[in-house]
Amino acid sequence: MSPILSVRNLSRSFGAIKAVDDVSFDLAKGELLALIGPNGAGKSTCFNMLMGQLKPSSGTVQLLGKNIAGMQPRKIWRMGVGRTFQITATYASMTVVENVQMALMSFHRKLYSLTTFAHTLYRDEALSLLDTVGMVDQAERHCAVLAYGDLKRLELAVALAHDPILLLMDEPTAGMAPRERIALMQLTADILDAKGVSVLFTEHDMDVVFSHAHRIMVLNRGQLIANGSVDEIRNNPQVQEVYLGGGTLFNAVQEDAHA
């Protein structure tokens, strides 16, 4: 089967620095692919190019065979790519359900309407999306007072509003407690199964990555240094050196603790 997303020779330089250097990979339908690497390795740059915030210096990004490299974020969204942000981005002056309705209004191209009352539009669809992420009981709450974990779930509902084929998640669990992290990724994995969405995400929490990713790619100094299954990555000496570390310090302590 042909891949959902196919990235070829993607590069981006800032001055003399090659932030992303000749990166190529594929993402299959229904796959949960993690992109990891040290800070400054080029993950954000790579992500921003996929989402249209940044134009690549060279290379192509094909979504279902169409090149989307250099397109504006909103055009990429229209082609079926949803995203969540590392630092949550929601509309603080609206209610939870209105945040989702906003995405639906945009999807149905109703933004310039002056005659209807917005809060009645696509309400049922929005509520059912909130139901998928377990937020329906908070639908009428003011977005500005939500707990952090709930904001993350709201963002997920918003990203799913236009039935995307691909979801890009930038550090989805950053700033969450360990238990919440696992819960959020489990939720993502369930939705992915149910809707057949593919996911590409960056993440620093290796517990999350190792327990949920189907496949892992490691970026270092702008280059893809490894791409493989969880076990392959875990045992890859190069990855251990630049990113994972020997784990000696912690392992020793943990073993003491368990002893």
Binding site: R74, V158, H162
Partner: peptide, 8 residues
């Protein structure tokens, strides 16, 4: 950034 990312 969220608005742009949802097609607005």
């Amino acid at each position: 950034r969220q608005a742009e990312a949802m097609g607005i």
